[in-house]
Design a binder for these strands. Structure first.
Length: 207
DNA sequence: TAAAAGATCCCCT
DNA sequence: GGGGATCTTTTAT
Protein backbone atom coordinates (compact mmCIF):
# COMPACT_ATOMS: atom_id res chain seq x y z
CA UNK A 1 0.00 0.00 0.00
CA UNK A 2 2.63 2.49 0.97
CA UNK A 3 4.87 1.73 -1.98
CA UNK A 4 1.83 1.94 -4.21
CA UNK A 5 1.16 5.43 -2.96
CA UNK A 6 4.77 6.39 -3.42
CA UNK A 7 4.70 5.22 -7.01
CA UNK A 8 1.43 6.98 -7.67
CA UNK A 9 2.63 10.33 -6.40
CA UNK A 10 6.30 10.33 -7.29
CA UNK A 11 6.73 12.62 -10.27
CA UNK A 12 9.52 14.53 -11.86
CA UNK A 13 11.90 16.80 -10.02
CA UNK A 14 10.25 20.02 -8.90
CA UNK A 15 11.26 22.74 -11.38
CA UNK A 16 13.20 25.40 -9.55
CA UNK A 17 11.46 28.06 -11.62
CA UNK A 18 8.15 27.17 -10.03
CA UNK A 19 9.62 27.78 -6.59
CA UNK A 20 10.67 31.32 -7.42
CA UNK A 21 8.19 33.85 -6.13
CA UNK A 22 6.49 35.34 -3.08
CA UNK A 23 6.41 32.63 -0.40
CA UNK A 24 2.69 33.00 0.22
CA UNK A 25 2.06 32.20 -3.45
CA UNK A 26 4.59 29.38 -3.72
CA UNK A 27 3.53 27.72 -0.46
CA UNK A 28 0.17 26.29 -1.61
CA UNK A 29 1.77 24.88 -4.77
CA UNK A 30 3.99 22.72 -2.55
CA UNK A 31 0.99 20.89 -1.10
CA UNK A 32 0.81 17.48 -2.72
CA UNK A 33 4.48 17.55 -3.69
CA UNK A 34 6.64 14.75 -2.40
CA UNK A 35 9.67 15.01 -0.17
CA UNK A 36 12.00 12.11 -0.81
CA UNK A 37 15.24 10.95 0.76
CA UNK A 38 17.72 8.91 -1.16
CA UNK A 39 17.28 6.04 1.29
CA UNK A 40 13.59 5.64 0.47
CA UNK A 41 12.02 7.74 3.16
CA UNK A 42 9.30 9.77 1.47
CA UNK A 43 6.12 11.68 2.17
CA UNK A 44 3.52 13.98 0.65
CA UNK A 45 3.59 17.56 1.88
CA UNK A 46 0.24 18.38 3.50
CA UNK A 47 0.91 21.48 5.61
CA UNK A 48 3.15 24.49 4.99
CA UNK A 49 3.62 28.08 6.10
CA UNK A 50 5.04 31.03 4.23
CA UNK A 51 7.66 33.28 5.76
CA UNK A 52 9.72 36.13 4.49
CA UNK A 53 9.89 39.41 2.77
CA UNK A 54 11.09 42.55 4.43
CA UNK A 55 7.62 43.22 5.77
CA UNK A 56 6.93 39.97 7.61
CA UNK A 57 7.68 40.53 11.30
CA UNK A 58 7.25 36.81 11.98
CA UNK A 59 10.11 35.94 9.64
CA UNK A 60 13.57 35.11 10.93
CA UNK A 61 14.92 37.50 8.33
CA UNK A 62 12.79 40.47 9.33
CA UNK A 63 15.78 42.21 10.92
CA UNK A 64 18.09 41.44 8.05
CA UNK A 65 20.66 38.75 7.33
CA UNK A 66 22.40 36.84 10.09
CA UNK A 67 24.57 33.80 10.37
CA UNK A 68 21.54 31.59 10.97
CA UNK A 69 19.18 32.85 8.29
CA UNK A 70 21.74 33.20 5.49
CA UNK A 71 20.10 30.47 3.42
CA UNK A 72 16.83 32.38 3.37
CA UNK A 73 18.53 35.01 1.24
CA UNK A 74 19.93 32.45 -1.16
CA UNK A 75 18.56 31.04 -4.41
CA UNK A 76 15.22 29.20 -4.54
CA UNK A 77 15.01 25.45 -4.26
CA UNK A 78 17.44 25.24 -1.35
CA UNK A 79 16.76 24.17 2.20
CA UNK A 80 16.82 26.60 5.09
CA UNK A 81 17.28 24.46 8.21
CA UNK A 82 17.38 26.03 11.65
CA UNK A 83 17.12 24.90 15.24
CA UNK A 84 13.88 25.70 16.99
CA UNK A 85 13.53 26.15 20.74
CA UNK A 86 17.04 24.82 21.04
CA UNK A 87 15.69 21.33 20.53
CA UNK A 88 14.20 20.64 17.14
CA UNK A 89 15.24 21.19 13.56
CA UNK A 90 12.83 22.89 11.17
CA UNK A 91 13.13 22.77 7.40
CA UNK A 92 12.07 25.43 4.90
CA UNK A 93 12.23 25.55 1.14
CA UNK A 94 13.67 28.85 -0.05
CA UNK A 95 11.69 30.65 -2.73
CA UNK A 96 14.21 33.35 -3.57
CA UNK A 97 15.25 35.32 -5.45
CA UNK A 98 18.84 35.81 -4.28
CA UNK A 99 19.01 38.74 -1.90
CA UNK A 100 15.39 38.38 -0.82
CA UNK A 101 14.53 36.39 2.29
CA UNK A 102 11.61 34.11 1.47
CA UNK A 103 10.91 30.53 2.43
CA UNK A 104 8.16 28.00 3.03
CA UNK A 105 8.21 26.08 6.31
CA UNK A 106 7.37 22.39 5.98
CA UNK A 107 4.97 21.70 8.83
CA UNK A 108 3.59 18.26 8.09
CA UNK A 109 4.12 15.39 5.71
CA UNK A 110 2.07 12.26 5.12
CA UNK A 111 4.58 9.41 5.22
CA UNK A 112 4.48 7.19 2.14
CA UNK A 113 7.78 5.35 2.14
CA UNK A 114 10.57 4.25 4.44
CA UNK A 115 8.21 4.09 7.39
CA UNK A 116 10.47 1.74 9.33
CA UNK A 117 13.44 4.06 8.99
CA UNK A 118 11.27 6.95 10.12
CA UNK A 119 10.06 5.11 13.20
CA UNK A 120 13.62 4.28 14.15
CA UNK A 121 14.76 7.86 13.56
CA UNK A 122 11.92 9.22 15.68
CA UNK A 123 11.79 6.80 18.57
CA UNK A 124 14.55 4.26 18.32
CA UNK A 125 13.78 0.59 18.70
CA UNK A 126 12.69 0.32 22.32
CA UNK A 127 9.35 2.10 22.48
CA UNK A 128 7.61 3.67 19.54
CA UNK A 129 4.77 6.14 19.13
CA UNK A 130 1.77 6.17 16.83
CA UNK A 131 2.43 6.57 13.13
CA UNK A 132 0.25 9.67 12.98
CA UNK A 133 2.97 11.40 15.00
CA UNK A 134 5.74 10.38 12.63
CA UNK A 135 5.80 13.54 10.51
CA UNK A 136 2.96 15.71 11.83
CA UNK A 137 4.92 18.74 12.96
CA UNK A 138 7.91 20.68 11.69
CA UNK A 139 10.27 19.21 14.28
CA UNK A 140 8.89 15.73 13.90
CA UNK A 141 9.25 15.52 10.15
CA UNK A 142 12.87 16.63 10.18
CA UNK A 143 13.62 14.02 12.82
CA UNK A 144 11.80 11.32 10.84
CA UNK A 145 13.70 12.24 7.68
CA UNK A 146 17.00 12.69 9.47
CA UNK A 147 17.27 16.31 8.39
CA UNK A 148 19.59 18.40 10.55
CA UNK A 149 21.78 21.44 10.34
CA UNK A 150 24.04 19.71 7.85
CA UNK A 151 21.24 19.94 5.29
CA UNK A 152 21.07 23.73 5.38
CA UNK A 153 21.52 25.02 1.83
CA UNK A 154 20.88 21.68 0.14
CA UNK A 155 19.43 21.87 -3.37
CA UNK A 156 16.15 19.93 -3.25
CA UNK A 157 15.46 20.48 -6.95
CA UNK A 158 18.39 18.25 -7.79
CA UNK A 159 17.01 14.69 -7.89
CA UNK A 160 20.45 13.42 -6.90
CA UNK A 161 20.40 15.30 -3.60
CA UNK A 162 19.95 13.27 -0.44
CA UNK A 163 16.70 15.16 0.00
CA UNK A 164 14.74 15.95 -3.14
CA UNK A 165 11.43 17.58 -3.93
CA UNK A 166 9.23 15.84 -6.49
CA UNK A 167 6.24 17.25 -8.26
CA UNK A 168 2.99 15.26 -8.38
CA UNK A 169 2.34 13.71 -11.79
CA UNK A 170 -0.82 15.70 -12.41
CA UNK A 171 -1.54 19.26 -11.49
CA UNK A 172 -5.12 18.51 -10.53
CA UNK A 173 -3.86 16.89 -7.36
CA UNK A 174 -3.06 20.39 -6.25
CA UNK A 175 -5.24 23.21 -5.06
CA UNK A 176 -8.20 21.08 -4.07
CA UNK A 177 -9.64 21.65 -0.65
CA UNK A 178 -6.72 23.73 0.45
CA UNK A 179 -7.44 25.77 3.56
CA UNK A 180 -5.60 28.94 4.55
CA UNK A 181 -5.26 30.05 8.17
CA UNK A 182 -2.92 32.00 10.49
CA UNK A 183 0.55 30.61 11.10
CA UNK A 184 1.21 28.55 14.23
CA UNK A 185 3.33 29.58 17.18
CA UNK A 186 3.94 33.17 16.18
CA UNK A 187 2.91 36.39 17.86
CA UNK A 188 3.31 38.85 14.99
CA UNK A 189 1.45 39.27 11.72
CA UNK A 190 -1.20 36.82 12.87
CA UNK A 191 -3.72 38.49 10.61
CA UNK A 192 -2.01 36.99 7.58
CA UNK A 193 -3.42 33.69 6.43
CA UNK A 194 -0.11 32.25 5.26
CA UNK A 195 -0.61 28.69 6.52
CA UNK A 196 -1.89 26.24 3.96
CA UNK A 197 -3.31 22.81 4.72
CA UNK A 198 -4.57 20.05 2.51
CA UNK A 199 -7.24 18.38 4.67
CA UNK A 200 -7.73 14.92 3.13
CA UNK A 201 -4.79 14.07 0.94
CA UNK A 202 -4.80 10.31 1.42
CA UNK A 203 -8.11 9.44 -0.22
CA UNK A 204 -7.40 11.57 -3.25
CA UNK A 205 -3.84 10.48 -3.78
CA UNK A 206 -4.46 6.80 -3.23
CA UNK A 207 -6.91 6.44 -6.09
C1' DT B 1 28.03 39.60 29.50
C1' DA B 2 23.37 38.82 30.39
C1' DA B 3 18.58 38.18 29.53
C1' DA B 4 14.51 37.20 27.02
C1' DA B 5 11.88 35.26 23.47
C1' DG B 6 10.86 31.62 20.51
C1' DA B 7 8.13 29.15 13.11
C1' DT B 8 7.87 23.15 19.47
C1' DC B 9 7.28 18.54 21.38
C1' DC B 10 6.59 15.14 25.07
C1' DC B 11 4.13 13.45 28.71
C1' DC B 12 0.60 13.30 31.82
C1' DT B 13 -4.17 14.14 32.88
C1' DG C 1 -6.23 19.02 25.82
C1' DG C 2 -2.79 21.55 28.73
C1' DG C 3 1.54 22.56 31.15
C1' DG C 4 6.44 22.17 31.47
C1' DA C 5 11.13 21.31 29.58
C1' DT C 6 14.53 22.48 26.60
C1' DC C 7 18.80 25.72 24.56
C1' DT C 8 19.91 28.58 20.57
C1' DT C 9 19.82 33.05 18.66
C1' DT C 10 19.31 37.66 19.06
C1' DT C 11 19.35 41.99 21.23
C1' DA C 12 20.23 45.07 24.94
C1' DT C 13 23.18 46.71 28.64
Amino acid sequence: MTTQLTDAVAGSAFPVGELLGPPELVAPTLLGAMLMRSDGRAGVIVEVEAYGGSDDPASHAFRGPSLRNASMFGPPGRLYVYRSYGIHWCANIVTGPVGTAAAVLLRAVMPTGGLEAMRTARWGTIRQGPDRHLCSGPGRLTQAFGIGGDFDGLDVCNPDSSVALLRPPTSDLLARGIVASPRIGISKATERYWRFVMPQPSTDLLQ
